[in-house]
Design a protein around this nucleic acid. Sequence first.
RNA 1: GCCCGGGUGGCGGAACGGUAGACGCAGUCGGCUUAAACCCGACGGUCCAAGCGGACGUGGGGGUUCGAAUCCCUCCCCGGGCACCA
Length: 812
Amino acid sequence: MSVRRYEPSHIEPKWQEVWERERTWEVTNQPDDREKSYILEMLPYPSGEPHIGHLKNYALGDAIAHFHRRIGQRVMHPMGYDAFGLPAENNAIKTGVHPREATDKSIAAYRHWFHRWGISIDWSRELGTHEPSYYRWTQWIFLKLLERGLAYRKEAAVKWCPYDQTVLANEQVIDGRCERCGHEVELRQLEQWFFRITDYADALLEGLNDIEWPEHVKTMQRNWIGRSEGAEVIFRCEELGIDYPVFTTRPDTLFGATFFVLAPEHPDVLKLARDTDHEDQVEEYINRSLGESLEERSAADKPKTGVPLGRTVTNPMNGEQIPVFVSDYVLMEYGTGAIMAVPGHDERDYAFARVHDLEIRQVIAGPDDELPYTGNGPLVNSGPFDGMPNREAMAAIVDWLDREGKGHASVSYKLRDWLISRQRYWGCPIPVIYCPECGMLPVPEEDLPVTLPDVEDYQPRGRSPLATAEDWVNTTCPSCGEKAHRETDTMDTFVDSSWYFLRYCDARNDQAAWDRSVVDGWMPVDQYIGGVEHAILHLMYARFFVKALADMELLSTQEPFKALFTQGMILGPDGHKMSSSKGNVVAPSRIVERYGADAARCYVLFMGPADQDAAWSDTGVEGVHRFLARLWRLGDELAGTADGGETPREPEGDDLVLVRKANWAIEKVTTDMGRFSFNTAISAIMELINEIYRHPGADPQARAFATATAGSLVFPFAPHLGAEVYEQLTGRRVWEDSWPGADSEMLQVDTFELVCQVNGKVRDRVSAPSGAPREELEQLCLAARGVQTHIDGHEVAKVVVVPDKLVNVVVR
RNA sequence: GCCCGGGUGGCGGAACGGUAGACGCAGUCGGCUUAAACCCGACGGUCCAAGCGGACGUGGGGGUUCGAAUCCCUCCCCGGGCACCA
């Protein structure tokens, strides 16, 4: 008989067919006595075919899902597609192919590969965010937010991408550039739709304390929300009789406020400068700075430019008249768009004062008289507050301001409301109608969904291509029945993905977005897995949605994702980020076709810690393939010779070694699963296989037991091979058997290698009985030859014994 | 500038304060083979030594400890995030 080879192309389709036919991974919404476990990977944006990062993402989530099922949990592991979005639309502009067509084709490819990879997905819950049966409920949620005042329209200076011809949310602007296309964004004054995420700033901040997320992701969200405690202080312009509040985190430095600065966009700048000698100069400055790109304006090391307005305001602490300037280092979007400048204790104000030769006054004593000084210390030059430590003075001064009616404690945030309207075609229509008589009206719930019409031309021209679909735009007013027109903007695609995890719970409900009891039965997601690039965007928006929906009593959970795991990127073999322009892209299809899905899946988890970036290696995947082939050959060889499900009775010698190693592996893989250490879990299974090869003469029962154990343990990573080997040796389906438990007796060893140290250096190793008393170990160590030669001629000062491990002899 | 991660053989990486380098890749040697591939096995930190063995060794320097890759201080380098946020 010729030696048979491991052929993933035979094994894998066989098991995939079983899982599909029997719908093995479907789970009902009916609770039972098992603990629920909602395992979710971020849904893919379907474009072309899945890439290697998707393989890692889903291999990772699948390993967790399988593990949780086999430790007795009721696991939901669904899949869907974030199907609306710009790439499909830009492709449509280029090729004329309808975005739906390209998207559905890509979805088919993703679906195909998820099957081919053997990912254990509950396909009965599959969804696409571009399907009317889904976005109907996206629109419904929009209406709920509108009803609650959490969706609103306002005119504001918004970020505009000239290439994509649409507005963007703050979160979608990276270094002054469009997140999608990389073009520099501009500011435009436009009326747009916003979600009032700022109402939830504190809730979003506090909720972070209750969830098991990587600390750096929490930090990024905290920084993005940017909560600062301080005070609002009123500076009055006596000449014009107008009060100007400013926000400051340093009320303790108020006596040092020697000038006052407005942002160029501040609505009162021209009003203040009017009829002064500076009017022309101010106008010129404003025009110049508004003409600058965001990138130019926001350079931190930019010299501090600005011009005086020819006016003064009153410092509320000491009544001094201080000059007012306009300068682009003050941002309109933060605080009140105006600041009190304290050059003695703020680096930016100091730089401005130096350029414009303004008074720099010290009001906090530092270790020396060097200014600007931003540290702590007692107050000086601060009237009645002199000598008070500045930390105390903050509260004391705010109290004083409060009593005088010149200010109060206040909190400020960097977080802005989420701008959600887009002037693009391939998105969820905003369900709103404008009537000349009745104004803006929500589309009645019973008229949902507002379906996306077909259009001829997808080219954006500063307004949504939907505006050209006249039959669709023109409608009747739901209130008065007269002619009216529809909102033509669509929603940011991040809106679609902010609630899909809720829809999975009740995916086929056509009466409601979800049934509350069903969602409460599954939520929150127990383990969420995805790339860190969504640390702010998607992860913050989804948290906001859940908090808002919980406030509407539509669900109970306060946080969507109880635990988060952020996977590292797979880099090209050259160590650089994969990109077609660099020619270093590794296509998963090629790997899966050559080595099989199991090898591809195992390798992406074996590469290194799953949360770290790692470079692809073709020889690395071959090594994992070799390991799987070794396991397969053991299964093939031992099939039918013994029952691998049975532990050998009273094993001895080689048999005992194998049984112990198998139990060691069970223990190791189990703990490693719990800490997401998949690379070490796989290496433990490799060690087990190596051990079996090292004992070819062991009893077939012991070898079959060890091999079946390896099949069982490898199943979460290589489900096809795991199922195959396990079935060959036990006749059972591995996923129907619970996760193996280590036999504590088999983890015990009779003897161990005692490490003998002298002054902390290993000098010998001797065999010692397990559980031996300290005195015995000490004697064994002192008697060891390597130890003897090193303590000879020295006085033994101390002996440290670590039972079952080592002895350290300290000599002088 | 501030805030997070990291820095261990030729490479990816492993290591509750207790044998540094598990596992894998690459390499060398041996077996199988007419031969090659596959496969099986052995050896691989550096330096000195024929060998026994010894010295050094986890980015640099210092410290705590019987004992430090691991804890503390300090500096250097790499990656990421934020960055005129008052």
